[in-house]
Design a protein around this nucleic acid. Structure first.
Lengths: 343, 343
DNA sequence: CTGTTAGCGCATTCAG
DNA sequence: CTGAATGCGCTAACAG
């Protein structure tokens, strides 16, 4: 009763009164054309018998799977969205995408996922920098499987050339500029070191912004990873500096926590405190007040990644294409920052 | 340079000076034991040559893939979390999970995903009720592939027996009870019809709760799908009823929107308005005030689903096990409802 | 156009 | 305990 011995092309061939080669031909529209009559017969037989092509056999035979593997650090929020868009783009390109999560940064799970995908002989791999250790990546590259890194900043060239990265640094840099323009007298970056490179990028951008646009403004950096007491922090922040104080939050989640604490403390937003988040989550739009945030061009990033992979499939010469690509974010202003009158 | 002709057991066999059968034996610890010496030789050779078993060939040969396919309506929030937990449980059971999203309720994408998975000859399928049409489901069942439905309430028995469902109805029912106990004089369910069956379950539970615990309390039902003006709604709600009014929100996202509107309108929570969400998201915990919500036992639900699938693999007789299983949620109380003094 | 044939890489009898 | 042989389902030349 289990697995009713799936029907194969042999049976379809028999039913249609043709050879298996013919069945194979008509069923995947290969270069070879068949007579209308034959096509009809085969398709009919296949339909009636409920034929379903066995991917393993096909893949084995032509050593090409039309499968792309995706390894992400998780599947929530940004990652989940990205996965959805990548799936769509992969599909448009005639491939399908198998999504795997490394459940945080667990190196064991990471290796296992990778092994599974490689043993499957996927045509290509898309991995999020955060989900991969250097060793794993080297092993992919050595295996000869084309790889596109997402958000893998500054990876050693010998193990991975180029990546599709979000412009977090630039966004944070611009955030400082925006906050200063909105009269902030002190600036603070509230990060999340647990997110490693991601946090690093934001921090870098923040510092760069300070240097370029606010060298005379007081600034500081704190981290939420070790259960920062946000209320105490905000209180102190406002005591120590002249309002309004501007905060660049690690993401909209962190921004929400800050916002909530501020609401609780009756801190006025944006008069006393201004906040900019990143991701432009559901949260940013639906909190009160709304949180100004940087929107991520999921679709564009996904497209870019898939295209880059496709490009590698064609194994063209290693042109300049192999460099890192930066995908810019878009600022969406809401009530958590003081809207400029001009414009 | 692409695909450096992956090494096969033939080469490993040659390098180790044994036959391919022996290599196969030692490499997957089959029932047959080999001499220590042979094992050593083979493992060494495999290691040095960088051998990686070809899943397709293995699967083809034994018609068993150790792969489970997962089809979800999306990958954000609840779905993403669920996927992660399912992946872990699948792994613990010796399988791996390939995750696919149907991108909402698009029947085309749904069929395609299904087809891909079936053609892959996955050993089993886990599908979210929302992601599947009846026809697709029937086609799975007919294919003989074991299927476990998640959150598939009241499916026709002939196409899918049993499912692992979250107890949304009961949670909503209890919500009404809780709100009444906390002195609410009027109750309202703010739903989201766009989520179809999910919303239906909640609505049912709400109505059941009203009937059983609050038959004398004024109540109403509204829907956010068609861009409900939440501020206007809240204003009207509080004008029409005696405070405090209790709201059962579709989920924490909807709850956040209501909360934000309330904050904006300076409505006092929980004195004038009480809110209960569902999902116990990040939002619920980090908003101000915190939102009372129902926590989802992801891990338990995932375990249950995988176990049920495993059970089907053993194709035991269709025991009573085939009935629907309900997974209960847990209430987490926060400031959006009035904490009872007792307890 | 259509049929024949030879693998793809591996697991699995069944003899030695 | 090990090896030679057979087949999984399909594709890809190559003949007819």
């Amino acid at each position: 009763m289990n697995k009713p011995k799936q029907v194969t092309i042999v049976e379809v061939a028999a039913a249609a009164g043709v050879s298996i080669a013919t069945v194979s031909n008509v069923l995947n529209r290969g270069g070879i054309r068949s007579s209308k009559e034959t096509i009809r017969k085969v398709e009919l037989a296949a339909e009636q018998l409920g034929y379903r092509r066995n991917t393993m056999a096909a893949g084995l035979s032509r050593s090409k799977t039309y499968e792309i593997g995706l390894i992400l650090p998780g599947l929530t929020n940004y990652y989940g969205q990205l996965a959805e868009h990548l799936q769509i783009e992969a599909h448009n390109a005639g491939y399908h995408l198998s999504v795997f999560s490394s459940g945080g940064f667990d190196p064991d799970i990471e290796r296992r996922n990778l092994e599974v995908l490689l043993q499957r002989r996927v045509d290509g791999l898309i991995c999020h920098g955060l989900a991969m250790g250097f060793e794993s990546t080297r092993s992919i590259v050595n295996s000869g499987t084309p790889l596109v890194l997402i958000n893998g900043w500054n990876w050693p060239e010998d193990i991975a050339l180029g990546a599709v990265n979000l412009g977090f640094a630039e966004a944070c840099k611009q955030s400082t500029k925006l906050l200063v323009e909105r009269d902030c007298r002190a600036l603070c970056y509230v990060g999340s070191k647990g997110s490693k490179v991601i946090d690093e990028q934001r921090r870098m951008g923040f510092n760069a912004g300070i240097q370029q646009y606010a060298s005379d403004v007081i600034h500081e950096i704190v981290d939420t990873t070790k259960d920062l007491d946000i209320e105490a922090f905000l209180t102190s922040l406002l005591q120590r500096h002249v309002a309004p104080v501007g905060i660049v939050a690690f993401d909209d989640h962190v921004a929400l926590r800050i916002l909530s604490a501020a609401n609780k403390l009756r801190i006025e937003i944006p008069n006393q405190l201004q906040i900019i988040g990143i991701n432009n989550d559901y949260i940013a739009k639906n909190s009160y007040p709304g949180i100004s945030s940087w929107d991520i061009p999921y679709s564009y990033q996904a497209q870019t990644a898939i295209n880059k992979l496709l490009h590698k499939f064609g194994n063209k010469a290693e042109s300049g294409e192999e460099r890192e690509i930066e995908v810019p974010l878009t600022f969406i202003e809401r009530e958590s920052t003081k809207l400029l009158k001009t414009e």
